Amino acid sequence: MNFDDLTLRQSFAPGGVLRASINLGNPILANKDAATGEPFGVSVDLARAFAGELGVELELVVFDTAGKSVQAVRDERADFGFFAIDPLRGERIAFTAPYVLIEGFYLVRDDSPIRTNADVDHPHNRIAVGNGSAYDLFLTRELKAAQIVRTPTSPAVVQTFIDDALEVAAGIRQQLEADAMNLPGLRMLDERFMVIRQAMGLPKSRGPAAAHALDEFVEEMKASGFVAEALARHGIAGASVAPTPDASA
Score class of each variant (00 low, 15 high):
residue 150 R to D: 02
residue 1 M to D: 08
residue 46 L to Y: 00
residue 155 P to V: 13
residue 205 S to F: 02
residue 94 A to I: 00
residue 228 A to D: 13
residue 242 A to S: 13
residue 208 P to C: 01
residue 239 A to S: 12
residue 99 Y to H: 12
residue 73 V to T: 03
residue 238 G to V: 12
residue 190 D to Q: 00
residue 193 F to E: 02
residue 189 L to D: 02
residue 214 L to E: 09
residue 160 T to D: 07
residue 71 Q to K: 09
residue 191 E to H: 01
residue 170 A to W: 03
residue 112 S to A: 12
residue 233 R to P: 01
residue 113 P to E: 10
residue 193 F to N: 06
residue 76 E to T: 14
residue 213 A to S: 09
residue 131 N to E: 10
residue 228 A to T: 02
residue 125 N to Y: 02
residue 49 A to E: 06
residue 118 A to W: 00
residue 241 V to H: 08
residue 193 F to Q: 06
residue 14 P to K: 15
residue 194 M to Y: 02
residue 170 A to S: 07
residue 10 Q to K: 15
residue 119 D to N: 11
residue 202 L to V: 05
residue 178 A to Y: 03
residue 35 A to D: 12
residue 94 A to F: 04
residue 142 E to A: 13
residue 126 R to Y: 04
residue 244 T to K: 07
residue 190 D to F: 00
residue 175 Q to M: 14
residue 158 V to L: 11
residue 199 A to E: 06
residue 86 D to H: 12
residue 160 T to L: 12
residue 130 G to Q: 11
residue 131 N to L: 07
residue 236 I to W: 11
residue 41 G to M: 03
residue 100 V to A: 10
residue 128 A to P: 11
residue 42 V to G: 01
residue 247 A to W: 01
residue 22 I to V: 11
residue 204 K to T: 01
residue 190 D to E: 00
residue 33 D to R: 04
residue 229 E to A: 15
residue 154 S to V: 10
residue 121 D to E: 10
residue 218 V to Q: 08
residue 16 G to I: 13
residue 75 D to A: 14
residue 55 G to E: 13
residue 188 M to K: 11
residue 77 R to A: 08
residue 140 T to I: 00
residue 166 L to A: 10
residue 149 V to W: 04
residue 174 Q to S: 15
residue 178 A to G: 04
residue 218 V to W: 10
residue 237 A to S: 15
residue 110 D to G: 10
residue 3 F to A: 08
residue 199 A to D: 10
residue 159 Q to R: 14
residue 182 N to D: 02
residue 64 D to F: 11
residue 202 L to Q: 00
residue 102 I to P: 01
residue 183 L to Q: 09
residue 23 N to F: 06
residue 159 Q to M: 14
residue 152 P to Y: 09
residue 92 R to W: 03
residue 10 Q to Y: 14
residue 198 Q to W: 11
residue 104 G to E: 03
residue 161 F to N: 04
residue 97 A to F: 05
residue 195 V to R: 09
residue 187 R to N: 08
residue 210 A to Y: 05
residue 179 D to V: 04
residue 54 L to E: 07
residue 11 S to P: 03
residue 86 D to K: 09
residue 152 P to W: 11
residue 47 A to W: 05
residue 125 N to F: 00
residue 212 H to R: 15
residue 11 S to R: 15
residue 196 I to F: 05
residue 198 Q to T: 14
residue 75 D to W: 07
residue 139 L to W: 07
residue 173 R to M: 06
residue 64 D to E: 12
residue 168 V to F: 06
residue 185 G to S: 00
residue 43 S to Q: 00
residue 217 F to S: 04
residue 45 D to E: 06
residue 203 P to G: 01
residue 147 Q to V: 02
residue 77 R to L: 08
residue 229 E to Q: 15
residue 172 I to E: 12
residue 152 P to D: 10
residue 36 T to H: 11
residue 187 R to G: 03
residue 6 L to W: 08
residue 226 F to P: 02
residue 207 G to I: 05
residue 110 D to N: 13
residue 56 V to Y: 11
residue 141 R to L: 08
residue 249 A to G: 00
residue 138 F to L: 13
residue 90 G to E: 04
residue 126 R to G: 03
residue 235 G to S: 13
residue 162 I to H: 05
residue 100 V to D: 06
residue 61 V to M: 02
residue 139 L to I: 07
residue 238 G to R: 11
residue 151 T to D: 14
residue 41 G to S: 05
residue 38 E to M: 14
residue 97 A to C: 14
residue 173 R to Q: 14
residue 8 L to Y: 09
residue 78 A to D: 02
residue 79 D to W: 07
residue 237 A to Q: 15
residue 74 R to F: 02
residue 165 A to I: 03
residue 57 E to Y: 03
